[in-house]
Design a protein around this nucleic acid. Structure first.
Ligand code: FES
Ligand code: FES
Lengths: 132, 132
DNA sequence: ATAAACCATACCAATTTTGTATGATTTATA
DNA sequence: TATAAATCATACAAAATTGGTATGGTTTAT
């Protein structure tokens, strides 16, 4: 039905691993433990840092650490961080794109219902639910 | 977050139009009213027929008609019909593909939670909710 | 100073999605 | 029964997205 992107999947694996560790974890450590390439791990971690889901320490002996408690981190937050905050419908992507099918589209509002329902559902699942 | 495919979006527009009509609607009529190309409408209608969401009458004077009451047709049904019944996670696509990251993956079961939540949410929205 | 790490960006390859084209089959009707 | 109106089946190319990698720059402990 809705396919979770590989990247989002990977990120859940990484975050699950991080929720076990108290100390910092570097890209190479994470890559080794998860069998992902360093480049891929690095790409994902950058997105998670931007979304303030993990915090980073630069320089030697640096690494990443969860910035949020697993029970306060929702699946929706994670997926949004990785795949972007694109709306559910193509029509409401941005205000610029006119709706071709229905003028002054009331349809768009209806589709927001779908989007809202999905968002809500994913908001109610925490990383802790996924990991424990 | 989750992007509704254009095809699924189109299909909701088409089904909304059909829920207004008592009589049969042909591909060309639907195309004209929705501003979609006939080929695209035809492609979508075939999928909806296969999913038994609409019924079709072949031959001259033929066309399509809703096979289900709008209040009994869920967004999940529609999206599944158009985009396929792919699972939410890449890992659980089919039994054949081994999980590379975590052996004997318990993770897959966790990800089913996400899938289940989304499915459930979309099951609770009917075409009538979207159209009315 | 050096090495270990994160950061930023750009890029190509692979996959998926969109959209169209072509021909075959069915059936109402003149 | 011939014709036209319509669905059905399949195949395919173009476009968009996603997955994954490479390169070079910046920060910081030792
Ligand atoms: S085109 Fe899909 S809502 Fe307007
Ligand atoms: S690789 Fe994603 S659950 Fe195993």
């Amino acid at each position: 039905m809705f396919k979770l992107s590989k990247m989002a999947d990977y990120s859940i694996v990484l975050l699950s691993r991080m929720s076990k560790a108290e100390d910092l974890l570097s890209t190479s450590e994470l890559a080794e433990e998860t069998q992902l390439s360093e480049a891929t791990v690095a790409k994902i971690m950058r997105l998670l840092v931007k979304a303030e889901i993990v915090s980073s320490i630069r320089g030697a002996q640096g690494g990443y650490r969860l910035a949020v408690l697993p029970e306060n981190l929702s699946a929706g937050d994670i997926i949004t961080a990785i795949d972007g905050p694109k709306a559910l419908t193509a029509c409401t992507d941005d205000g610029a794109g006119e709706c071709i099918l229905i003028k002054n589209s009331a349809m768009a509002m209806r589709l927001q219902k779908i989007n809202g329902a999905v968002k809500n559902a994913l908001h109610n699942i925490s990383l802790k639910d996924l990991y424990v």
